[in-house]
Design a protein around this nucleic acid. Sequence first.
DNA 1: GTAACTTCCGCCGAAGATCGAACAAAGCCT
DNA 2: AGGCTTTGTTCGATCTTCGGCGGAAGTTAC
Lengths: 385, 385
Amino acid sequence: MTPQPGSAGDVLTLISAGSATTRSDLARLTGLARSTISQRVDALIERGLVEETENGESTGGRPPRQLRLHTEDHAFAGVDLGATHCRVALMDISGNVLAECEDSMLIGEGPEKVLAHVDQRLDRLLGTAGRPRSALRAIGIGVPGPVEFATGRPNNPPIMPGWNDYPVPDYFDGVEVLVDNDVNVMALGEHRNSFADAGHLLFVKVGTGIGCGIVAQGRLHRGAQGSAGDIGHIRVSGHEDAGCRCGNSACLEAVAGGAAIARRLTELGLAAETGADVVALVQAGNTQALRLVREAGRLIGEVLASLVNFFNPEVIVIGGALSRVHEHLLAGIRETVYRRSLPLATHHLSITPSRTGINAAVLGAGMLAIEHYLSPDNINRIVNA
Amino acid sequence: MTPQPGSAGDVLTLISAGSATTRSDLARLTGLARSTISQRVDALIERGLVEETENGESTGGRPPRQLRLHTEDHAFAGVDLGATHCRVALMDISGNVLAECEDSMLIGEGPEKVLAHVDQRLDRLLGTAGRPRSALRAIGIGVPGPVEFATGRPNNPPIMPGWNDYPVPDYFDGVEVLVDNDVNVMALGEHRNSFADAGHLLFVKVGTGIGCGIVAQGRLHRGAQGSAGDIGHIRVSGHEDAGCRCGNSACLEAVAGGAAIARRLTELGLAAETGADVVALVQAGNTQALRLVREAGRLIGEVLASLVNFFNPEVIVIGGALSRVHEHLLAGIRETVYRRSLPLATHHLSITPSRTGINAAVLGAGMLAIEHYLSPDNINRIVNA
DNA sequence: GTAACTTCCGCCGAAGATCGAACAAAGCCT
DNA sequence: AGGCTTTGTTCGATCTTCGGCGGAAGTTAC
């Protein structure tokens, strides 16, 4: 059932969201008596979930004791698995990064090897942060492919050989594990860290391919089969000749993705294989590369213009490898969206580069873990145990 | 705050959703003691919200007393305002239509005249249904244009002269009034009446123009400015010559809407002005009209293919005037969507004509009113008053 | 037909949760 | 220093919920 209002979990949610920092705040917000709130807070302190800090500002009377999430004793991990990299961040309960690391890693080596790698990194990070393994409460993992979120099993991922239907959470003992598509966790990370008050947000990742994470009413929209946001294979007009690995032609990804731009640069006699090569060329001032990136922006903008009309978001965030040259990409996107979408939808729309940048995925994966752990239901379970 | 679990409102929700029809069911579902449930139910019966009916089937012991929403004493209205018509339905608390009516009416005559018309129809319907005016608890209204849902004020509607920013709810005294875009209420009506267990649904209305209502996680998605679902002005490829009333060209509506098809038929020397004329020609077996409708289906399908990749719905419902010839429209839509969308997204996707048909809007508007009235918060307010 | 069994429902005392008043604590203001 | 204001705690009163008991109303077995 839905959580009890004013329950311990509810109280903790208000504290973690920053809506309330004192007992009086909580009493006002929940409508419960001060004595009841004290009781709840005591229970949360006893369980090590909340701590009191030095007194706050007096407003003419006794200064209130500040409350905040107890950052010791608990740890959470965000894991960002890419085709060729692995980033892990250890966070405390309020989302601050305690330690992080990054290395090259090939996801194609299969789940056992990759997860062993992650596990080892986790141990090391726990060591540097000085927390025991038992402090780790939940792990969020973003992977480069579709996932059945409820079970944490990848669902026919094209670039993750050996991972199909592999039960990722089972690999870790005694910890809750949440697995989601990388673009989804990036959207979550960006929303929670930079646009927490926006109700509806799109995170567009422009890298080798193109994908999109959707936040609707503050929550991730995954769709019926968990495949929502797969905008890389939306058709764009006037590029019927561009074949895509999905079998169709004129897919957005096949004409505006990093790999596609690199291919076209190669045709022009420039050495480029990946999105990173494209970025390097643009940063070196190559006009051909710059032109193609801007053109890609216009094509992405054409698709986004449709999605703006349809979804009417408040914010569109552009991330991924190519957002490193976001001035050029954004110019093309903005130009097209503002020309092709309805004024009512674009009037209060902002289109910005990612603020969390390269960390969007680890942060989002960590938030996924933390929010799961802090959900009122889970907290009530812990407190009443 | 969130409603109390197992509160009177919660209990009523379970009854109204049909999840529970006896006190024992409620006890099982809520986890509350049987005695507590009895107390809740008594309160609801006392307030006239629930009634007991004759005994149900015994399962080996004493047969349970059936519970259901008390259909007397309350009434709700759904109002469907179109450019040239007005439909009103009076419903009881469980959504059954008690009486309905339909007449021609020009929305351009302005809010005072139109709402007076609605008010008069309401009185007449209340009379035939034998209920006093005081029984009317809430009214839902669907209008052909954008609305700021929170305030019930139309927001620069193109085909509703005189309505801009008019506070529709203020016109009615002592009744709660909810105003929303017509496509949104149609989506709601179709979802609640035919696809209640689908989480994500799109309702596409193909009439003079083209619009879309979005149900995400069982709730209407209205977007940041309430303009979500405005797919009529999404660009379709290969029709740059087709100018649209919005100022852009190649808008979906400008090439596949009823008005656009009629215009092209006129160019071919056939008498057609509206979507209804197109339908008549198709039904008369005119091959030109049939070809154009099928072609329109393909164009709509092209846009929907994008939206399927992006949103990953479970169901797409096709409604509106042109859905009367849905065999032809759907053929084009299905063909394109299944070819252009990703297999993972289309595998469990069903694309069907509207089952509620012409009544989608009134039913949806009524559901909007009923659901507002039956929301746990509102019921708790009533019971605790 | 009757006895045993099952399920449903209301009653009531016990246990638990919440409230609010009273009081103590801690700083501000004059 | 003494009053004022706001915060936090203690504690008895009140309200809510629980769960056992018994009566009601059927079904099943014999």
